[in-house]
Amino acid sequence: MTFARRVVVLVAVAAGLQWACGPFRSRTPQPKGQATVVILPEADGTVGRATVSNPNGSVELSTARASTRVVPGVAPEAVTIMSEEEVMRRFGAAIAAQPPAPAHFTLYFEFDSDELTAESQRLVSQVQDSVKLYPAPQVAVVGHTDTTGSATANIGLGLRRAEVVRMRLIEAGVDRSAIVVTSHGEATLLVPTADNVNEPRNRRVDITVR
């Protein structure tokens, strides 16, 4: 075989291989209703847990980028780990559209009072700085009390505390239309206690900026 002919044969073989292998994958029709589920690590590096199930079976995802595929009427496939590159290639567009993670702040109050502790007064400007980071920001202000006094009175006290924080935030420059104020009274304690317990950590206002 001459050199030229050898080259022609090699090119033909290569082209044939490429034809056979290359487009093959993309021509395989993806089954209707097929779902691919991948668990992603949290911002702090930890990984949660998810269960993917249907009437035919169930698998658990609990390590970074653990992934399964499932088609209707068949049990989910065995778990595999998807590479970081593959995650970005397939899900990069959705990851890029993720809104910023909400931020949480807790301000504390003096006993039986709507007066912020000195330390918490200083936090107000931090909240205001944080609000600037969010598109169409929302600031949820939720007042809480300890279990001293009646549940009804504590709804009122929680609301007064939340109102104090609302006024401080507006003074600091937060747009008043972004703020929503509510009170849980003594319904959602940070530190569970019996009734009529004076617990400073329960006398608080939780702020979520999202």
């Binding site: 779902a35 668990i39 949290e42 993917v52 199930s53 499932v70 009427g73 397939r90």
Partner: peptide, 15 residues
Amino acid sequence: TPSAIVGVRGTSLAL
């Protein structure tokens, strides 16, 4: 999803 239900325990997922 059309083929399965996903249950979560404090988690980020891509689907």
